[in-house]
């Protein structure tokens, strides 16, 4: 097993590298107790570089979703540490964690990602309105223009195609200018054309405005849009590559599967 890549992702002391948007140290997540206990994360160390598009890959049950949930403050670790920017998420109570999610994190989910009773516009500004703020109008227009939803803002989710719904979700994640956007299989429910559009939007957001994005996926073609890919298997980081292509990702995946 090739593990030097994961070591390369760790910040060597004093190395001139990008600052980490989020850091994971010694992360362990166990479900259940005793004989039936399942270890979803087994001492994971990982840095999410700021302003980059990072993909997390792995077979089913590898722990990739758990890792993302813990990174995003949706779930808590059994042991270890997740630091978002300068905040240790493990030290926060529910109220502070809620504030972190609201102000510093954006989400794109695989499905059921919009509130069905709200219009597209209302869905996009939802995190801001939950925080009691007005979204920046210029930024809102820019994001909406970027994802190409201008004429669809008054529609309800049920009146939008799957691709359009997911574009609303991406816009929602971007509009509050979070430090990190987490995307959980964002193209899982989409046809390939819509999926490609979404991935291009996300890549553009990283390239043009320096948005940090972490995406969990099992699709090598999707991972190829990322700047780097981290591979998980059995709760451990087993590999990592920079500037991936669909072929190199597929190649690594096959090796992990072996």
């Amino acid at each position: 097993m090739d593990t030097h890549h994961s070591a390369a992702l760790l910040d060597p002391p004093g190395a001139p590298t990008r600052p980490a948007a989020a850091r994971v140290r010694g992360a362990v997540k166990r479900y259940g107790r005793g004989d039936t206990a399942v270890t979803a994360l087994d001492h994971v160390d990982l840095d999410i570089p700021a302003g980059r598009f990072t993909a997390v890959m792995g077979p089913s049950g590898s722990g990739k979703s758990t890792l993302m949930h813990c990174l995003a403050g949706l779930d808590t670790l059994t042991a270890g540490q997740v630091v978002l920017g300068d905040v240790d998420l493990g030290s926060l109570n529910d109220r502070d964690l809620t504030r972190v999610r609201r102000e510093r994190i954006g989400f794109v989910f695989q499905s059921f990602n919009l509130v069905p009773t709200l219009t597209a516009r209302e869905n996009i500004v939802l995190p801001s309105s939950l925080a009691g703020r007005k979204p920046d109008a210029d930024w809102f227009d820019q994001v909406v223009a970027t994802v190409g939803l201008g004429d669809r803002l008054r529609h309800r989710p049920a009146e939008l195609s799957g691709g359009q719904q997911q574009r609303v979700a991406v816009a929602r994640a971007l509009v509050s200018r979070p430090e990190v956007v987490f995307a959980d299989e964002p193209t899982g429910n989409l046809d390939s054309r819509s999926g490609t559009e979404i991935l291009e939007f996300m890549a553009a957001a990283v390239r043009d405005i320096g948005q940090t994005i972490v995406m969990v996926t099992h699709d090598p073609a999707a991972a190829a849009y990322a700047d780097s890919v981290v591979f998980l298997a059995d709760g451990r980081i087993v590999d990592a590559i920079d500037d991936p292509t669909a072929d190199t990702v597929l190649d690594r995946m096959k090796r992990i599967g072996d």
């Binding site: 109220r95 504030r99 939802l126």
Partner: peptide
């Protein structure tokens, strides 16, 4: 979903 997007318990 609302909680994930930052709605507090109070909200």
């Amino acid at each position: 979903l609302l909680r994930a997007l930052g709605a507090s318990r109070g909200q």
